[in-house]
Design a protein around this nucleic acid. Structure first.
Length: 333
DNA sequence: GCAATTGCATGATTT
DNA sequence: AAAATCATGCAATTG
């Protein structure tokens, strides 16, 4: 019901919708819109014949209903379909992109003023060149952090270029997931996760908070990031997860039985269903995300692309995203 | 018997 | 140098 099985055949005929949507996201033919105001929920202009698939509810990623209405209302403004399905989503990339960007950067123009030096988990965690080019990965090279988030630009380096997953790691340049894990590892010592993160934030109480507030409150955090290998994207549909991050942030696997994980797609209005399990391996374990074939296929992920899993700490839901690798020129201009 | 899926072992790489 | 991690291939199992 509303969920798309991540494994075999769950996509069915909808897959064309998703792929068209995804294609539109990556085409990025329209100018980037100002992210505010958020689209009103379920606007009256939402067409009953909306081509976008119905999302599962509730959405884990902030309020997917807002996202959905964005898809719906924006689709309604599109010219009547003349050619492909993609036209229905011709503007949705902008919203998806904003979503993508905000989750990636965890920034927002109305972030508290700079004098509030309270460390911000995501902001710090994302302060990493690897992600600095996410906006550019959608072809918006002129889109800078400063222009989007003037209040916090002093905390963040400007976007310098497209993401390059091939970039070498430097010791002082730890991937954010490592930093997140360092915090999240408290889970293994019996400390409640969100009491340490969300609880320290001023606006953690629910109510009228919107996307932005939730993002700023640090509810969404990158918990796992992996560059996909050839075997990950093979036709088996299983992805080996980094042990450290899996143990730190994914549900504990007490038994051999797989745990079913539902993860909202960050870009598409889909909830994927994965089987999360482990294999004994020497004296250790290998953590596997199974039934990922459809997800990989839908996003066209290949070796070198990156899988990113976010966690919404409050309801404990996950958001998953596949990021295509942009192979940056290594020669400087 | 075959294809798909699942489980495991091994070797390469990293820490 | 040893241990840990992980990519990958293959055997075993299942439908």
């Amino acid at each position: 019901m509303g969920q798309m099985d991540g494994g075999d055949g769950g996509g069915g005929g909808h897959q064309y919708h998703y792929q068209a949507l995804l294609a539109a996201v990556h085409q990025q033919t329209l100018p980037f819109p100002h992210p505010l105001p958020l689209p009103a929920a379920a606007g009256p202009e939402a067409p009953p014949h909306n081509a976008a698939p119905q999302p599962p509810t509730p959405r884990g990623f902030a309020d997917w209903s807002a996202s959905t209405s964005a898809f719906s209302s924006l689709a309604a403004q599109s010219a009547p379909a003349a050619s492909t399905n993609a036209v229905h989503y011709s503007i949705s990339p902008c919203y998806a992109f904003w979503t993508h960007y905000m989750l990636n950067k965890n920034v927002y123009p109305s972030f508290p003023p700079p004098h509030d030096e309270q460390p911000h988990h995501l902001r710090l965690a994302n302060n990493h060149p690897k992600d600095a080019g996410s906006a550019s990965s959608f072809g918006v090279d002129s889109f800078t952090t400063a222009s989007m988030a003037p209040n916090i630009c002093t905390h963040m380096p400007p976007i310098e270029g497209p993401i390059s997953v091939k970039e070498e790691k430097k010791p002082e340049d730890l991937p954010r997931v490592v930093k997140r894990s360092d915090v999240l590892e408290t889970r293994n010592s019996g400390v409640e996760l969100h009491s340490e993160t969300v609880g320290t934030l001023p606006d953690s109480k629910q109510g009228h908070e919107n996307h932005a507030t939730k993002l700023n409150s640090g509810e969404y955090q990158v918990i796992l990031r992996k560059e996909l290998t050839k075997s990950d994207v093979g036709n088996v549909g299983r992805i080996v997860l980094p042990k450290k991050d899996a143990e730190a942030s994914l549900p504990p696997l007490l038994q051999r039985d797989p745990v079913i994980l539902h993860m909202d797609d960050m870009v598409l209005p889909v909830t994927w269903t994965f089987k999360y399990r482990y294999w004994p391996n020497n004296k250790s374990r290998m953590y596997i995300l199974d039934s990922a074939g459809e997800f990989l296929k839908t996003h066209g992920l290949q070796a070198g692309d990156v899988l990113i899993i976010y966690k919404n700490l409050a309801p404990g839901k996950f958001i998953i995203r596949g990021e295509k690798a942009i192979h940056q020129r290594t020669t400087n201009p």
